[in-house]
Each structure stands twice: as structure tokens, then as C-alpha cells.
Design a protein around this nucleic acid. Sequence first.
DNA 1: CATGAATGAGTATTCATTCAT
DNA 2: TATGAATGAATACTCATTCAT
Lengths: 224, 224, 224, 224
Amino acid sequence: MVTVSARKTGRPKNELLTARRREEILHAAAHIFAERGYPNTDLQAVADTLQIGKGTIYRYFPSKRDLFLAAVDQGMHQLQELIDTTLSGIEDPFEKIVVGLRTYLAYFNEHPETAELLIQERAAFRDRKKPTYFEYCDAVANTWQVIFENLIREGRVRDIPVDRILDVLGNLMYGTMFTNFFTGPNKSFEEQARDIVDITFFGILSRKEQRRQQRVVNRPETRE
Amino acid sequence: MVTVSARKTGRPKNELLTARRREEILHAAAHIFAERGYPNTDLQAVADTLQIGKGTIYRYFPSKRDLFLAAVDQGMHQLQELIDTTLSGIEDPFEKIVVGLRTYLAYFNEHPETAELLIQERAAFRDRKKPTYFEYCDAVANTWQVIFENLIREGRVRDIPVDRILDVLGNLMYGTMFTNFFTGPNKSFEEQARDIVDITFFGILSRKEQRRQQRVVNRPETRE
Amino acid sequence: MVTVSARKTGRPKNELLTARRREEILHAAAHIFAERGYPNTDLQAVADTLQIGKGTIYRYFPSKRDLFLAAVDQGMHQLQELIDTTLSGIEDPFEKIVVGLRTYLAYFNEHPETAELLIQERAAFRDRKKPTYFEYCDAVANTWQVIFENLIREGRVRDIPVDRILDVLGNLMYGTMFTNFFTGPNKSFEEQARDIVDITFFGILSRKEQRRQQRVVNRPETRE
Amino acid sequence: MVTVSARKTGRPKNELLTARRREEILHAAAHIFAERGYPNTDLQAVADTLQIGKGTIYRYFPSKRDLFLAAVDQGMHQLQELIDTTLSGIEDPFEKIVVGLRTYLAYFNEHPETAELLIQERAAFRDRKKPTYFEYCDAVANTWQVIFENLIREGRVRDIPVDRILDVLGNLMYGTMFTNFFTGPNKSFEEQARDIVDITFFGILSRKEQRRQQRVVNRPETRE
DNA sequence: CATGAATGAGTATTCATTCAT
DNA sequence: TATGAATGAATACTCATTCAT
């Protein structure tokens, strides 16, 4: 391909190299931010890790803050892509739910630095309207909404308002992820996924107790 | 100058006053730390709020870090006391669970600064073995363990290993608390408690689906 | 004198000491700013000179800029006070002019750092509406205005619009001061004052030439 | 590849183009340095203005400092050339003086950036032996020396040592230029030139007062 | 006991200059 | 030759902590 322009004869920019270096910086930064915390991280440390000059980082990201937020975003983006890919071949809605849950826990199990970044983001940027995590949640909420609506229509899930289900499941996943991160997981993510599914699908009550309580409290919104 | 009872007397500390001031400092500090974040809070601001000298704070707490951790601890302590008090008159185990859950959510609803402090603690003191929150969780875990064991023995709760139940419920509460804090609650804590109870007690599956899935997957650990 | 308040029992501030230290900082800063230039001056250098901590300077002046401007202002203030004092006992208007001029040049001769600060101010704060120097000029302009008006009324000075006289004399003094500062004075300030007075009072033209030129150009505004 | 005249030829530099670009850089730099001040100007801004690469500037000037000093020098050079040209056709010595003065003020009126550069030069390079301005002054001093000596010999100017006259006039011009620049001119440069000539030629004293003062003080150096 | 004056270690960011392309 | 990517030295200001009063 021949371009007319010319004129600019200097050192041509290598876009591929530029993009690769951006990724490298992001990757190193994510780990160092997670390891030391946002306020304790000197960009010099990131530069040293990559064996580049501190000024170079500023060529790619306008500020420490921007670099950090880009790192958080990248982490969430990867999670989203992973889930999208994993679920793409699955038809059965229940399997989608179970696999999605397991993938979520698996991701944070393998990328604890992403969890750390979510904490750091909140601690350092209390002002940001909405944490990156919840922005991503909003983005996929509708997909799950539809899935559950279908299940309810088919009579496979109780007729509970879907947002209640999503809230409870979402909060449970979120809490599990953070707890794992804070205390270290006391069981494998597969086991965790299994336990969550078991309890949220079947409830903790025994059959007998379920029947009894439903008789006592005539909960109108939770008809079978 | 004559002192009556030997030399140890001197100027008697007014222990009451001392304790009161300690509380005042802790209270003010909790709110300011929560409002500005740990690294952005300078003790001068705390001193100014209380109209005392900065040095005075150092007479009550040896360092900024200690003051902060004391504030976190106070928050969790209050929560614990509130729950203990609230549950003390309740006999029915299910009611204990439901009321405990509601009280927990109510507390953080009224004291969002405690939630903020938990975040800040984690962000600032990544090194501390275990966050204050989970120390308190451990402290009460046994109580709930016993409650659920009894329920299982009585056949009112499915025979699931109790720690699984506690993990799932604990993570769900924790996740709900943080989500509320991050995004603002989209429903009242009473509604949240109700939804959590509904789903974790009865499960989301319809009766029919529950039966079907239990037939398909012969899950040996979850006999009724 | 007994003050009621009390309450605040801590270390009392010593206002005298505070004021003295402020002066000390200002004095040291003036010389160091002048010696190294505004942008090249690190407040650490000022602190080192005074054997105090850098933070201490910031207790007295909110920023490097403020410290600098205070130093400039102090320099001009001293000049003004010196001139006021010197002229206070003088009645004869011509003597006032001559002595004022000499005092002005003498001051900058003894305080070359003030001249340097005026340059630095202009170079560093191009945005400030009016340089400190000219603010002080404006403040005294009226006094001299009156003196010259009287001299004109008495027929001792030619009937030239007074602001022209003030402009020319002012610019001449200003230019002389800066030239002295830039190139080093090539004569004593007394000689400079004498030369300025000689030329501005009598003009450089010979009597004969003055008469000739006045015949040729009938300059209406400069009647004798 | 065949080159005609031995090896030195290679790609012949286009000297004209080179010189033109040098001028362009100098011109742009002068304005940007004047607008932002020496320390606040980064060479990137100069490069951007000219739409060239930052490295290219370094092909023409070895350092920021050199570029700046070249810009100052160019400004003074232009002034000198303008005055030389303007005066070349003038025979009458008084007219030379008046026109020279007016041209000087006119130049700085049209090129305020040159005045700014003179300030910046002094502020940034306190160490340089002599500011560019005074180097140029020295270069032309002799010409004016001769002119005044002739006028004195012809009895048209009072027999004052010529360097006194030059000092006073020089300082007056310098002060006027800077004042104009700092405060904005409050009258046109033509009026300023007229006022300066009026006062320095005729003095401010009235005839009567001139006579009186000359009687009182028998100033030996200022005989008519 | 209470105070706040004093301290100085710690940090994000810029920009002159170099040099690979 | 022209370019702009890369570099790292340099810099104003804050704030936890101490301690004289």
C-alpha cells in the first residue's frame, strides 16, 4: 500500500510495539499495585520491574491514577471475556448459571490481584461514581435477567421477582470472592460453587420444614 | 503541699474523663477516616474537629495506625453488642437467624462508616494477618454452628455440613453489606433480609424442578 | 492584665518570637532568591541557612511564591520608609527632589538584592497585574505631583504637564537603578544623582542653542 | 553512484533552506519564550508550533539555553539594524538623536517580546558577565560619543562630560522601555520621545530658576 | 496534662537531552 | 536528515511524630 503523504520522514512509530508495551506496563502495574497498595506504589517500582524509565510510563498513561484505573478495568474486562467465552457454547440455562458462577470464582482464584485492585480502587477513589466492578455488573445484568425470566416462565424456577434473585446471587458471589481474598479460600472454588448452587437452588430447609413454614407464613410473592 | 495517703496519690487521674475523651476521639476519627480515607486523613483534622491539640491525640493513641484500628474495632464491637443484645431474648432458632441477619444489615445501614473503615483497613494494612471483620466472625462462628447443628438434628434443616451453610450465609451477608455500601442500597434492609431468607431457606428452584434435579443428580450429601 | 478564657492550657505562643522568625525567614529568603533566582531556589536552601526545617518555613508562608512576594514587598516597603524618613525634615521642594533621588539610588546601591527580586518577580510572575515596584510608585505619585505643581505655580519649574515630568524622572530613576544593577555602577550613586539633577534641571543644550531651538520650534506647551 | 568533484560532495546541504529554518525556529522560540518565560517554556511547544520534531531543534541549536540566547541576540540585532538604517540618511546631529530615540521606543513598542526576553535573560542567566542588551549598548556607544563631542565643540551642547550625558540618556531610554513593557505605555512612543527630548534638552527648571540656581551653586562642570 | 511549633522523610510529575530508526 | 520514543534528574509541598513550654 502506498500512502501519498510522506513529508514526515522521521522515526516511524511501531504501533505493534506501542500496544505491546502498553500491555506490559498494565500487567506489571496491576501486580505491583495489588502487592503494595495504591498509595504505597511508586511508579518508579513499576518502571524498575520493566527495566524502563519512569518517564516512559507517563508516555503511555497520563497519571498514576489513570494507570491504576486502566489496570482495574483490564482485570474486569478479562473476567468478562472469560465468562463470555466459556458460556458461549452452553445452551442449558442452569448449566449457564452453574458454569458462570464457577468461572467467576475461578478467575478471582487465579487472579487475586484483581480482587485487590477492586478494594484499592474503592479505598483510593471514594469519589468515583460507581466502582468499575459494578459497572461491569450492570453491563451483563440484562443477560441474566432474561435467563431467569425464561426459567420462571417454564416453571423451573419459583416465581420470585428476578431482580431479587439477581441481587442475592450477585451479593453472594461478591461476598464469596472478597472473603476468599481476605481470608484465603478454605475450600476449592469448585466446592464453593457447588455449595452455593446447592443452597441457593434447594434452600437449607428440609422438605418438611419448607412445607411447614409455607403453611404458616402465607408468603404471597413466593408461590411455587 | 500535703498529700494525705502517701506519695502515690498526686493528681488523681480522672479515669472517667479519660475514658470519655478516648471515646470522643475514636468517634470523631471513625467518621473522618471513613469520609476521607485513611491515607488522606491527617490527624490535624481530627484534632480540629474536637477542638483539641494534635498532641493530645497522641496521649490517647500511640500512632495514627493504632487510632484507626481502634476505630475499626470499636465499630465491629458495637455491631457485636447490638446483635448479642437483640438476640438475647429470642428462643426460636429460625427467628434468631432472621433477626440476626436483619440486625446485621440494619447496623451497616445506620453506620456506613464502619463499612468504609473495613475497606480502608484492608487497603491500608494488607499485611495484617486477618482483617478485624473476620476476627469478629470467628468469634461468633461457634454460636451459630451450634444453632444449625440443632436444627439439623431436629430435621428442620437439611443435613448439609454446617460450615457450608455458614460460609454461604456469611459470604452472602458480607457481599450484601459491601454492595449496599458501594452502590447505595436499592431496597430497604428489611426487604433485603426477607429476600435473603426466602432464597436461602427455600431455594430458587420450583418444587417440581427441585424434585427433578434431585432425581437426576443423586447428590449424596444433601439428603433431606 | 487578667484574661478570663483560660481553657487552652497548652504551650502558649510567643508572638514576639513568631514575628522575629518571620523576619529572619524573609531576610534569608530575599538574599537567597536574589542570589540564585526564583526558579533555582529550593526552600531547603533557605531552611538550611537558618538551620531550621523546611516545614517550618511553610508554617510561616503558605508557598514558595508567597514567601518570594513577601520578600519583594518587604524590600520596597523598606525603601519607601527610608525615603519617607529622610524627606520628613526637608522643606525645600528642590532639596526634596534631589535628596529623594539620592536616597533611592543609595538604597538600591546598598540592597542590590531588592533590584534582583524585582527582576525575578517580573520574570516569574508575568501574570501578576502590576509588579510590586509600580504599586509602590503609584502610592507615592500624588505626593510628588503636588510638589511639582507648586513649583510650577511659583514659576520655578517650566509649565510642563506634571505627569510628563514624573514619567521622565521616574523612568530615568528606574533605568538607572537597573543599569547599575546589571552592569555594576560605574560611578558612585552621589555622582549619579548629581548628573541626573544637572541634566534634568538644566537640560543638555547650551543657552544659545536653547534659545535658537525655542525660536525655531514654537513649542506651545513649554513656555517658560 | 558517481559524484563529480571528489568525495566531499555527497548530498549537498541546501544552505538556504537551512538558514531559513534556523530563522523560523528563532522567531517562534522568541515569541514562546517571551510569552511563557524561559523556565516555563518547553521545547516541545516550540517544535509543535513549527510542526517539526523536537529533535530537529537540536540540530540547529545545541541546547535550550543557546536557542534562547540566540533569540535575544536576534532581537537586539534587529533593533541595531533598524536604527542604523533609519539614521543612515540623517545628517543633523540633533535629528539623529531625536530620531534614534524615537526608533528605539518604536521598536520595543512593536516588539515587546524583545523586552521580555531581556528580562528573562537576566533572570535565568544571572551568571552571564554582561547582558546582551549592554553588549549592544557598548557597541554603539562610541558613535554617540563622537556625535555629542562635536555638538559640545560647536557650543550647541553644554560642556558636560559626554559619558554623563550618555549615561543619563541611556538609563532614561532603558527605564522608559521597561516601564512601558511592565505597565503598558500610557502614551504613544512619539509623545514619549517628545517629552524625553523636551526635558533632557531644556531641563525642567524655568529660565529664571536656572539662572538663580546657577548663581547660587557655582557648579564648575556645567558652564554653558 | 495539653498544646502546637518544629521537623524532614517521602512522592507525583515534568522536560531537556539523547539516539535508534 | 528528521523524528519522537525513551530517559531520569530535579522539585514543591505534606503530615506523622516529637517535645519544649
